[in-house]
Computed example of a mutant assay.
Amino acid sequence: MANSGSGETVTERIVRVLETFDADRTVQTASEIGRRANLPSSTAHRMVAELVQCGLLERDEEHRVRLGMRLWELALRGSHALRLRQAALPYMERVQARVREHTQLAVLENDETLFVERLSHPQAGANITRIAGRLPLHASSSGLVLLAHAPRELQDRVLAGPLGAVSPETVTDPVRLRQVLAAVRRDGIVVAPGTVESVSTGVAVPVREGRGRVVAALSVVLPRETPTRPVVDELRAAAAGISTALGARRP
């Protein structure tokens, strides 16, 4: 795509416009989008109009703007995340029926933990994660699984910091974090009390594809004092089932 006067490509500007939306900001005016995307007002209004015209954005009856169904449709076509979710959901539902808290599926995306599915019981404990939400790799049980099995250069980049604390118990010391990652690779499990919220414990295991590469993390979030051993057994059985399903569905 051609560059703008600022040196940005049109594609980069479109991404900035779309990134102004999140789970807490689902509807905006074109002017609000322009301010949050740091775009001139005329440029923002023109881009919004073009994105509405092609269906990537939609206008409501008050002429405010939201993400379009066309964007959702395109995102799901041939998506690796869709294939992974389809393979994982039956096993996640089994875990959820027995644990009755939060069951989550996460992948590594742009050096962060991206949650692609979550099942929750109405009376489950605290959990800040959400579908399509992100956390730093070092700051959740799922992220620790993904980071432990990531390429060495990615691990070194993350460990070089800064390692921000999501909670007072998030591991932010690089030496200690390397020890945690080594234990994850050795034990095949993460039990992380208080890493995200002090009242919760995250428990996570790796999900592997047919050739053994780790492609996701399967986790549950429990109240802090809940015994974790039964959950570990459930997660390991589910992860094995997902890995088998992924192998069976390989083109």
Rank of each mutant, 00 (worst) to 15 (best):
G210E: 03
R66Y: 05
T170A: 09
R118G: 05
P230H: 04
P162D: 11
V52A: 12
L177G: 10
S243N: 04
G133K: 02
E73G: 15
H63G: 10
A87M: 02
R185W: 05
S167C: 09
T103K: 03
V48H: 12
R85K: 11
Q53F: 14
A124C: 08
A49V: 13
A37M: 11
P174G: 10
E225N: 10
E112P: 00
E12I: 01
V175R: 02
G133I: 00
A106R: 03
E209W: 00
L56G: 12
A30L: 06
Q123A: 09
L135R: 09
T172G: 08
G247W: 01
A204K: 05
V180G: 10
A182H: 03
H63L: 14
T11P: 01
E62T: 11
E58G: 12
R83K: 09
A182G: 15
A204G: 07
L235G: 02
E32S: 13
L119R: 05
R249E: 14
A148D: 09
D24L: 05
L137C: 07
L84V: 04
G241Y: 00
Q155S: 08
G164C: 03
G143A: 04
V190W: 00
L159Q: 14
R134Y: 04
A2G: 13
E101Q: 13
V52Q: 07
A238T: 05
R134I: 01
R130H: 08
S198P: 04
A150V: 11
L39S: 13
A239P: 02
V196A: 07
E50C: 12
A150F: 03
H102G: 05
G68D: 03
S140E: 06
V199A: 07
P168A: 14
I33N: 13
A23G: 07
E8S: 14
R208D: 02
A30D: 15
V199I: 06
L181F: 01
G247M: 02
C54H: 15
E58D: 15
D60F: 06
L71C: 13
E209D: 14
V166Q: 08
R46H: 15
